[in-house]
């Protein structure tokens, strides 16, 4: 599931940093005078989910489960016994599929960025796990960052798990 950073947009309307994944796009922006920042796309091990495909010995139905004994949201724990369920194979899934399709990407800064200027980054290159909801990984897709003259410094606190939580 996608997580969008929460910030007060009413008093802050930052310019947007775009993200591109192809060199022809990079060159087009460079020709227009934009600064681009290359970054490797690296999967985050926290975004992997491991589990198994199990097949029912009774009716051959197949299901995914994280293990033979696992919690179910509204009904406690469920057990898939070896008598009733055959393990077909272990599988691994990655929450942010996009990141498996690229090895690099580049941020395109708005024209004439000022040192200290804060930007909205609409498509985060880095894969960050913010929180989880049962089997779903909640990952960041955007961000707020300040330009320091050589790099974008992201506001990391916006990805704290508390951003997905309300306690009270």
């Amino acid at each position: 599931m996608e997580f969008n950073v929460r910030f007060d947009r009413s008093y802050m309307t930052p310019r947007t940093v775009k993200t591109v994944f192809a060199l022809d796009e990079v060159n087009e922006f460079i020709s227009q005078g934009h600064m681009v920042l290359f970054e490797k796309v690296k999967p985050n091990k926290k975004l992997y989910s491991k589990g198994f495909i199990f097949q029912s010995a009774k009716d051959s139905r197949c299901i995914f489960a994280p293990s033979r004994h696992f919690p179910v949201q509204h009904s406690g724990w469920e057990t898939l016994s070896e008598d009733e369920w055959n393990e077909v194979m272990p599988i691994t899934e990655y929450a942010r599929e996009r990141s498996l399709n690229y090895t690099w990407a580049a941020y395109v800064l708005p024209l004439a960025p000022e040192v200290g200027e804060t930007f909205y980054v609409e498509d985060l290159i880095e894969d960050i796990l913010v929180s989880e909801f049962w089997e779903s990984k909640i990952y960041a897709v955007d961000g707020i960052a300040t330009w320091n003259g050589s790099a974008l410094k992201f506001r990391r606190e916006l990805y704290d798990s508390g951003e997905c939580m309300i306690v009270g």
Binding site: M1, Q73, H74, S131, F133, S136, I138, C164, M165, I166, V167, G168
Partner: peptide, 22 residues
């Protein structure tokens, strides 16, 4: 579940909750 939560809060509205926005 929603029903379980409502029942819990009817019994004790001061129950401290952890809520996932998702």
């Amino acid at each position: 579940s929603e029903l379980q939560l409502v029942a819990l809060l009817e019994e004790d509205p001061s129950t401290c909750l952890k809520i996932n926005r998702y």
